[in-house]
Amino acid sequence: MDEELVKIKQLKTSFRVLDDYYAAVDDVTLTIYKNEVLAIVGESGSGKSALAFSIMGLHNRAKIEGEIYYRGENIANASPGRWNKLRGREMGMIFQDSLSALNPLMIIGTQIEETLLLHNPKISARERKIRVIDLLMKVGIPRPEKTYYQYPHELSGGMRQRVIIAIAIANQPQLLIADEPTTALDVTIQAQILDLLRQLKNEMRAAIVLITHDLGIVAEMADRVAVMYAGQIVEIADVYTLIENPLHPYTKMLLKSVPSSSGAKSRLHVIQGVVPALHKLPREGCRFRGRIPWMDASVHESNPMLHEVRPGHYVRCTCYQYFHFPDKYKEESSHGTH
C-alpha cells in the first residue's frame, strides 16, 4: 500500500442545534493513502458529507474535536490562513450540483483562473489563460476557447461537472474529495465522468475520497470502502471483501436493497425505520440496533468499538457475529398488504 496521506483520529464534528452541540461525525478514525480511491457510503444523514467537509475545513460554525493529520501536520483546527493554503492546492473538492456550485454571474474561465491565481499569484494573465485552456482540454471539453467565455447556464450538466473537476485539479492536489459527483447526471455521462476521474487519479497519483450512495459506483471505482451510519464508520474493508463478504448488518442489508440490473426479480430487502435525526441519535450502545429490532439486545456491545476482523477489515459492534435476516421479513417489508 502507498504512503499515508491523511490520518484522521477520533474525529468529532458537532453542530449547534439550539443550545446544544450534536455530533454529525462521531469518533471517526480513518486513514487515506496516496493513490487510492476510498469510497464513503451511507444514506443521507449518515455524516458522510460532514466528514468530507471536515477534512476540507469547510464547516463554518462547527466544533471539531480529534485530529486530522495531513502529511503529518494536524490541521483539525488550523488557522484560516493555513486552510486557504491547503484548500485548492493540496486538496480539491468536486460537488454534486454543478449548476449551483458555479457562480452564475462569472464566465467559466475566470472561475477556473481564480484557483490558479490564489496559489500562484505571480503567473501572468496570459499564462493563466493558457493553463485554463489546457485544463479544460484535459477534462475533455471539446471547444475550450469557447467554453472559457461561457457562463455556467450555457453548458450541459456533464460539461459543467467537467468544469468543476477542472477547478478541483487546477493545482494538482494530492487529495480529491468528490461528493456525489455523478448523482445529478445521466448514466452515459456518469460513465464518462467516472472514467475521467479514474484517468486523472492515475495521472496525478492523488487520493480520491468518493462519497456516494450508489453501490454500483463503489464497486466500479473504489479500492477501499468505508460504510457510515449515523455519524460513525460501521465497516471498512477493501472493495472485494466489503461487497463479497460484508459483515456489519447495515452493509449486508444495504447490498440487498439495491435493484440489480442483471435481472433477478427477487423482492428488494427493506431496512426498517429511518436514520434517526441528529438530535435523536442514541448516544450509547449500538446505533444500528433500532433498525434490527428482531436481534436480541445482548448481541450489542455497550460501547461499540471498531474491531479488526482481518487486516484492514474493521467492523463496529459485536452484533455482526450473531446477525441473521429476520425469518418473517417478507411480511414485515410488505406491511399493509392484507
Binding site: 469547510l58 484560516p80 485548492g88 460537488f95 450540483d97 449551483s100 456550485a101 458555479l102 454571474l105 481564480e114
Partner: peptide, 29 residues
C-alpha cells in the same frame, strides 16, 4: 448560503475575497 460560495472557499479563497469577489458582486447586481 449558495453552493458556489463553498466552491470559492474550496479553491482556497480567503473570507475577504469570498465576500468581495462572490458575495458582494452577486448581491449588488
Amino acid at each position: 448560503q449558495k453552493d458556489f460560495i463553498i466552491t470559492a472557499r474550496a479553491k482556497g479563497a480567503s473570507e475577504q475575497r469570498v465576500y468581495h469577489r462572490h458575495i458582494l458582486r452577486n448581491s449588488l447586481l
